[in-house]
Nucleic acid binder design. Structure first.
Length: 517
RNA sequence: GGCAGCGUAGCUCAGUGGUAGAGCAGGGGAAUCAUAAUCCCUUGGUCGGGGGUUCAAAUCCCUCCGCUGCUACCA
């Protein structure tokens, strides 16, 4: 399988100055599910995440903490590495922008861009607010006393001019538009694509890509007075991780261009405009897709430190369980849209869909097999039309999921799986194996076999979203590690009658509210 | 302001010209294998307001109201 089909996907690198919250967890979760799905489907997957560790804010935070920036980032980036364990992410690499491999990569890319004539030295001038650490456009400012300009934030601005290197972004407008046109799925969802195209059509200015006002960053080759613009630094991580500047052979040849950059909607432009332009200028291929997902609100309110409603991923996992949390985040909201997290919705999903629909289906079937079939995979007789119908729907799921996961429609993929869960529950009621037990034990065995085989399909297919629970179900079907890939779906990997099965155990407990004190 | 999108059952949403749909919530019933889980039936909407095109509009056009996103160098 290795060497044939590859899939390279990335999360953004997270800014170490932030504390990990549900939003970070969500982005990486989506990638993790995709990565697991593709691996099970036989792809050679590389799944990358990491931390963005340069910039003025980090420099200041380190200063405030009284430590040097490197020691500071060593400490805070651990928060994000810990998140990997909390959420059971299966990333293959964790990159940090302070690593030597990345510094070398960024400087190589810079040099390449200079050689290509796309970077030149100019000067950046504008109205700067020292208090806000930001430049403002003339149209944003109002006149204050003594001819001062006042920013929207109320801060006084002064005219500042500093030398800066520029990237010739303006030269790439037409080529970017041609690229979007030739690759209609480069930006998803479609609404976001339209925004980006409109933005680029509106005209592009050259981009200031160096700074001289602080030091914590990667020095510009040959001009140590400048450090590189954080986005040029940060975006390059995606090629650093596959070995850039080594582009011949190795991981770069194997994995680039990336199949997917998953990003939050707030950083779409950097990935969908600047990044392809940088890459094309360097003679490299742009990624195949950038997907911009939405944001979460909490109980209907925007997440914010001042409201005190920021949810740490650990809290969710401790309160509801890891698989439950992973399921909820991908099931509750059409992927790409904004969504709301609420306790009530979470409990509804856990109890109705996981415990009652899926968990109880597994339990009722395995329990009947345990009691009535000698705790072995039952021996089926001839299949009826109803049997074939259910098996057919279970076997058709893979095709559906490939299509939905292929466009990052996680909610639709799960919806399709639960449609079969519903079919299976209806089938149990219609076939009533508990009645067949007395009238036609052979038919009962067939019905239970069909159900066990259906559950096998469901559990194999829910592995990417709920690895632990799915694994426990597969354990209960006595399926070993080599019997859990998508290549085993369908008749080829069918359960073997007579195989001994362990005693069934519940996999999805109901969420019971703590009694009020 | 400009551009784009949205407004459909209590809630979340699907439905782009031909007798209004799903899930959840609410009501009734069946069954009893199972985590009192499951299954069946059912209440419920002048499809944001108004106007127009059409034999026929949630679906096309105009307009009004409300909401959201984008409108570059803070990440």
């Amino acid at each position: 399988m290795a060497g044939s089909k590859t899939y390279y996907l990335t999360t953004p690198i997270y800014y170490v100055n932030d504390v990990p919250h549900i939003g970070h967890a969500y982005t990486t979760l989506a990638c993790d599910v995709l990565a697991r799905f593709m691996r099970l489907d036989g792809y050679d997957v590389k799944f990358l995440t990491g931390t963005d560790e340069h910039g003025q804010k980090v420099e200041k935070s380190a200063q405030a903490a009284g430590v040097d920036p490197q020691a500071f980032t060593d400490r805070v980036s651990q928060n994000f590495r810990d998140l990997v364990g909390v959420m059971d992410y299966s990333n293959d690499d964790f990159i940090r922008t302070t690593e030597p491999r990345h510094v070398a990569s960024v400087q190589a890319l810079w040099t390449r861009l200079v050689e290509a004539g796309d970077i030149y030295l100019g000067s950046y001038a504008g109205w700067y607010s020292v208090r806000d650490e930001a430049f403002y456009g003339t149209d944003e400012l109002r006149d204050g006393p003594n001819g001062k300009k006042i920013a929207p934030t109320g801060a006084e601005c002064e005219w500042v001019e500093e030398p800066s290197y520029f990237f010739r972004l303006s030269a790439w407008q037409d080529r970017l538009l041609a690229f979007y046109d030739a690759n209609p799925d480069f930006i998803l969802p479609p609404g976001k694509r339209n925004e980006v195209v409109a933005f680029v059509k509106g005209g592009l200015q050259d981009l200031s890509v160096s700074r001289t006002t602080f030091k914590w960053g990667i020095p510009v080759p040959g001009d140590d007075a400048h450090i590189m613009y954080v986005w040029l630094d940060a975006l390059t991580n995606y090629i650093t991780a596959v070995g850039y500047p080594q582009t011949e052979g190795g991981e770069f040849a194997k994995y680039w261009p990336a199949d997917l950059h998953m990003v939050g909607k707030d950083i779409l432009r950097f990935h969908a405009v600047y990044w392809p332009a940088f890459l094309m200028a360097a003679g490299l291929q742009p990624p195949k897709r950038v997907f911009a997902h939405g944001w979460w609100t909490i109980e209907g309110q925007k997440m914010s430190k001042s409201l005190g409603n920021v949810i740490a991923p650990e809290t969710l996992v401790k309160t509801y369980g890891l698989d439950q949390t992973r399921y909820f985040l991908l099931r509750e909201v059409p992927f790409g849209n904004d969504g709301d997290f609420s306790h009530a919705a979470m409990v509804r999903r856990i109890n109705s869909e996981l415990a009652n629909d899926y968990g109880n289906l597994v339990q009722r079937v395995l329990s009947m097999i345990g009691k009535n079939c000698g705790a072995q995979v039952p021996q089926p007789g001839p299949f009826t039309e109803a049997d074939e119908a259910l098996l057919g729907r279970a076997r058709a799921l893979l095709g559906t999921l490939r299509a939905e996961i292929g466009v990052q429609a996680f909610h639709k993929a799960l919806d399709a799986v639960w449609a079969v869960v519903g079919d299976a529950n209806r089938y149990v009621d219609e076939q009533a194996p508990w009645a067949l037990k007395k009238t036609d034990p052979a038919r009962m065995a067939t019905v239970l076999y069909v159900l066990a085989e259906t559950i096998r399909h469901l559990a194999i297919l829910t592995q990417p979203v709920m690895p632990a629970a799915s694994s426990r179900i597969l354990d209960q079907l006595a399926l070993g590690p080599d019997a859990r890939g998508f290549d085993r779906l369908g008749q080829g990997g069918a359960l073997v009658p007579g195989t001994a099965l362990p005693a069934p155990q519940g996999v999805f407990p109901r969420y019971v509210e703590e009694p009020k004190t």
